[in-house]
Design a protein around this nucleic acid. Structure first.
Lengths: 155, 155
DNA sequence: TAATTACCTAGTGATTTGGTTGGAAATAGA
DNA sequence: TCTATTTCCAACCAAATCACTAGGTAATTA
């Protein structure tokens, strides 16, 4: 898995779209202005998002972008994978030349952990984030998703 | 947050250390051999891990690295933060010049999500991963941590 | 026709990645 | 004490990635 600033930009832009796209299409110029991301960089990100059907573009005056599907059907994992080229994990290409077994062992552990992280992000949708915010206008600490058993360790 | 191949290398190396360090110190040469990571790159990673007291080095023949504390006291988030320089999230530096409010809104949403991801990774320890593997020798699908409510969405 | 917008391609400086080289300091064993 | 081993440390490097700029073309509206 890969979670970089590029993915953050994409998620941020999609959030902007989910929040402001209720009435009509949102232009990249608006998102650029709102989020402080350069227009051309947004174009590149949205090319990737469009290829995965996460957004739908409308050309011409009055055009812009819509979400490609309902905000509940778009997970954070979907967005990050679209722009960050889901890096395939080196799992020794099956079982070949995995010297000693110690290598395969840690690879397996890492793969399991990666899958867990992916599932975590796949379970949070754009809709979840938006609703959480609306519900949290003056309240506090609304749980983001079904998953929320944090405690024990801090930074 | 930031989850790159660099962090993956660090987690993988720490897993190797947790698995093989029961009897004595583990040399970087062994980890390099086991995991296919260059020795010098490991040195750089372990310099960062050492500065955060996640590992303890012993010089000289028969030397190597120990875990700096119990594997239960080392979270995945600890490891990734040590090598990846925990990127501070642009939250508009407080509340200044955040045009329109739409920007602050998505920033807040992103910050909340980031915190959630961090908590998720902070709740998984090296010890969890090791125990999961031992428990899963011939069994299947042992839950990794307390957190495991996945369903609904897939890739 | 003109303005607006998505869409496309190429390039660019800065940073990060993952690695190499060449050591120095500490320690165990001969 | 000498030597081998190992961590430690600094500088440097090619390749990739990041975030952006520049300069268009295609579709659509008024």
């Amino acid at each position: 898995m890969r979670l970089s600033t590029k993915g953050r930009y994409a998620v941020t832009a999609m959030l902007d779209l989910a929040l402001n796209g209720k009435t009509g299409p949102v232009t990249l110029a608006e998102i650029s202005e709102n989020q402080g991301i350069s227009l051309s960089y947004l174009e590149q990100l949205f090319a990737a998002l469009r290829s995965k059907d996460l957004v739908r573009g409308v050309r011409g005056p009055g055009g812009g972008y819509y979400l490609g599907k309902s905000s509940d059907e778009i997970s954070i994992a979907n967005i990050i994978c679209a722009v960050d080229e889901w890096v395939e994990f080196t799992r020794c290409g099956g079982r070949q030349n995995c010297s000693g077994g110690a290598r395969c062992l840690t690879h397996t552990l890492w793969d399991d952990l990666s899958a867990e992280i992916f599932n975590f992000l796949a379970d949070i949708s754009l809709g979840d984030l938006v609703r959480r915010n609306l519900a949290n206008r003056n309240g506090r600490d609304t749980s983001l998703s079904a998953v929320s058993t944090s405690s024990s360790q801090a930074a």
